[in-house]
Design a protein around this nucleic acid. Structure first.
Lengths: 200, 200
DNA sequence: GTCTATAGCGGGATAGAC
DNA sequence: GTCTATCCCGCTATAGAC
């Protein structure tokens, strides 16, 4: 589990970022990070005051990467874009870099890490809300929808998909969960279309 | 955090069951359990070979309790029963006794615990599938639905709701997620009803 | 900037007395 | 069945040399 980067500092951050994702915060020891980064203990405590400070830097990097991934690929229609985001490949067995943090006891005890996670979720939620509102404005989805509520339902499906995939040790449950949701969105859009035509 | 029960063994299992729920497996030490159960170290290692064995007994109890809760309250219609289960009160901040286990590194390393979790998820999934199929049979939901897929979407919404609630430190996201899903089910049922009538 | 040595603490379990 | 003493280990960090 070697990690790239030039300076010791970069190597440490990159290694921690990966380990946070794969093993979580509590389960990752300074030793693990040093080994992965191929960096000695002296360097570690020279560049960072301790595990917490390194985790902040690494989590920040993980969050940035994730939000970048969600940044818009333009699509034919708002609904298509929404579905494209929903159906984007998700490594069910690896888990979510951010959502994972919420189940880590040591993260819950750490206000700084916790608030970073919360902010990240707020950001993605806003992203969903924008897509939903755009779809409503384009008459692809009914006006009656509560976009904040639906945004949370969508986020929950993704986060829950990760939980199921880990429980079953398989990618399939994640795929089923998101496809089930996509089908429901399609039905919603179609019936709205039909209703719109009949009253037009 | 005292725990009820008569024999030391019972007290230990009850305490562990609660701690598994609240703190998880990795984060719960034998010391914690003994303190909560008000039982000495001698008793602990007399009744159980170690932490693992106690966890198996405690997790088994937690799973039984959860499955009992899901056991049927009879309702007016299959769809109503389905929604009633979906909207049942869920303590978002406390988390799911079972789903929580899937994010615990020490649980993932423990094949016995992991398979218990997997079995529990299979059981609840089957329960959802039955309710969905019943609703389809009663013509409340369209035949085109893939009941296994939808069951997983529903389970994911619940599990994801817990993740969101912990991230935000609030019950609200969980409630939003399930209500968003309930609304979609209603829309699905309604449009199916309409479509059914128009082609009748 | 990086190294090695050391330290305090808690996790998890064993030993043997009572 | 329950008690206390003890053990080994890894986590996290500090100290001081190079």
């Amino acid at each position: 589990m070697k990690t790239s980067g030039n300076t010791s500092r970069e190597r440490l951050v990159n290694a921690m970022a990966l380990l946070l994702w794969e093993k979580g915060y509590a389960a990752t020891s300074p030793r693990d990070v040093m080994a992965a980064a191929e960096v000695g203990q002296g360097s570690f405590y020279h560049h960072f005051s301790g595990k917490h400070e390194l985790a902040v830097a690494a989590l920040s990097q993980n969050i940035s990467e994730l939000l970048d991934q969600d940044a818009g690929t333009v699509r034919s229609s708002p609904l298509e874009e929404l579905k494209a985001h929903l159906l984007r490949p998700r490594p069910g067995l690896k888990g979510c870099r951010i959502g994972r943090m919420t189940q880590d006891p040591k993260v819950l005890e750490d206000p700084e890490l916790l608030s970073m996670v919360e902010d990240a979720f707020r950001a993605t939620e806003q992203s969903w809300i924008k897509m939903i509102d755009a779809a409503i404005k384009a008459k692809e989805l009914p006006e009656s929808l509560d976009s904040q509520q639906l945004a949370r339902t969508l986020t929950a499906v993704l986060q829950g998909g990760y939980v199921l995939s880990r429980a079953y040790g398989s990618q399939q449950p994640m795929d089923d969960a998101v496809h089930g949701m996509a089908s429901m969105l399609d039905s919603l859009a179609q019936s709205h279309q039909v209703a719109g035509n009949s009253t037009a």
